[in-house]
Amino acid sequence: MGHYLSIDIGGTYIKYALMDDQHRLVNHQKMTTPENIGYAIFKQIDAITEAAADNYKIDGIGISTAGIVDREKGEIIYAGPTIKDYKGTAFKAWLTEKYKLPVHVENDVNAALLGEIWKGAARNQDNVFCITLGTGIGGAFYNQLLIDGFHHQANSVGYLLYDPETRTNYEQRASTTALNKMIANELGESFSAKIVFERAKNGDETCFSIIKAWTMEVAKGLAQIILLTDPRCILIGGGVSVQGDYLLELIQNQLETFLPNSFLKTELKIAELFNDAALYGAVYPFFNRDIS
Rank of each mutant, 00 (worst) to 15 (best):
I225M: 15
K220Q: 14
S241L: 11
W214L: 10
I236D: 04
I210Y: 02
A223W: 12
G221W: 09
G237L: 13
T215P: 10
A219F: 09
G237D: 11
K212A: 11
G239F: 02
S241C: 15
G239D: 03
V218W: 08
L227E: 00
T215K: 04
G238M: 09
I225H: 08
I211M: 10
V240H: 10
A223E: 10
T215F: 06
V240T: 07
P231H: 07
C233Y: 00
Q243L: 09
S209H: 12
I236W: 04
P231R: 08
I211G: 02
G239H: 02
R232N: 15
I210D: 02
D230E: 15
V218F: 05
I234S: 10
D230Q: 07
L227H: 01
Q224H: 13
K212F: 05
V242L: 10
V240C: 11
V218L: 11
G221V: 05
S209V: 00
I225T: 13
R232H: 14
F208R: 05
M216P: 00
C207S: 14
D230M: 02
F208I: 00
S209E: 13
D230S: 10
Q224P: 00
G237S: 12
G244C: 10
P231S: 08
Q224D: 14
I236E: 03
V242N: 08
G244N: 14
P231Y: 03
G239W: 03
G221M: 07
T229P: 00
D230I: 06
G238Y: 12
A219E: 07
I211C: 00
S209Q: 14
R232L: 07
I210F: 06
I210W: 04
K220D: 02
W214A: 10
I211P: 03
W214M: 13
A219P: 11
V240Y: 05
Q224C: 15
Q243H: 12
F208H: 09
F208T: 01
Q224W: 09
L228S: 09
T215C: 15
K220A: 03
P231L: 06
K212V: 01
V242Y: 05
R232F: 06
M216C: 11
P231I: 06
F208P: 00
F208S: 03
C207I: 05
G238S: 13
L228G: 02
I210K: 03
I211E: 00
M216Q: 14
G237A: 12
A223T: 12
Q224N: 14
P231A: 05
Q243T: 08
A213I: 00
R232I: 00
L222R: 06
W214S: 11
P231M: 03
S209Y: 03
A213C: 01
